[in-house]
């Protein structure tokens, strides 16, 4: 196939070049739409000293929580880190550095990182601990703080369906941070449930064009549910 074929055959190949102390941007919200097999591959590889930007840090024993077990994460940039006892213990003991970032600011930092915007002003966090030490400017009588974009050495993400060129479709709320995470990585690695031939996806229905994707791999997913909540018939 042509040079646009992004498919790799093994998780080892998918994360080739990931080294200690790199910055990784991960998609997912809670355990929904997380690149679960790529996380497991980082655990297997034993890469250490990572800075990871992700909305959440997984839970005990699942998602990014797996990387805490062998202390592979040095610094976590996230908006919400509850539901994870090991995380809390490592944060409290100072082993794990945590930069709490408002959810919308985190999403925009990734979006900006992928879009060539080095920083942006937002009202979010002004006058709070998040705004401390950051440049403040007033526009139309309101205060805004300057937030810098995020870029990763790698991004790891999950989509639903892709063609071999890496054109992506996401499914339901598993989309969440994935599109922005992908755009913000120098090497963007995406795992999907299904890979189809080029031409099979309707160009109008592609959520993220393959130009942002460097490596694509088909995986099988456990899709754990954090809060299974049902109503009775």
């Amino acid at each position: 196939m042509s040079g646009f074929d992004k498919v790799v055959d093994s998780y080892e190949d998918a994360l080739a070049g990931l080294e200690d102390n790199m910055m990784v941007i991960a998609g997912g919200f809670g355990l929904c739409g997380i690149p679960e097999n790529l996380i497991k591959e980082i655990k297997r590889k034993g890469t250490k000293g990572l800075t990871v930007a992700s909305n959440n840090a997984g839970v005990d024993g699942a998602g990014l929580g797996l990387l805490l077990e062998d202390k592979q994460i040095k610094k976590m940039i996230a908006s919400y880190v509850g539901e994870n006892a090991l995380f809390e213990a490592q944060m409290m003991s100072g082993e794990l550095e945590v930069e709490l970032t408002p959810q919308g600011t985190l999403a925009e930092k990734m979006r900006a990182g992928g879009a060539g915007i080095p920083a942006f002003y937002t009202a979010t966090g002004y006058g709070t601990p998040v705004g401390e030490g950051k440049e403040v400017r007033e526009f139309n009588g309101r205060h805004y703080i300057l937030e810098e974009a995020l870029q990763g050495d790698f991004s790891i993400a999950k989509a639903w369906k892709a063609d071999r060129f890496g054109n992506l479709m996401f499914r339901k709320t598993a989309r969440n941070f994935n599109p922005m995470a992908i755009t913000a990585g120098k090497i963007a690695v995406v795992e999907v449930e299904e890979i189809v031939e080029v031409g099979e996806l309707d160009p109008d229905e592609i959520h993220l064009p393959g130009i942002y994707v460097d490596r694509l791999i088909k995986g099988t997913f456990e899709k754990m549910i954090e809060q299974r909540t049902v109503r009775s018939a």
Binding site: Y80, L100, Q103, G104, T105, T122, T124
Partner: peptide, 11 residues
Amino acid sequence: KGMGGAMDLVA
């Protein structure tokens, strides 16, 4: 535990 989306919502 973190602010999640609350800071963006109130701002």
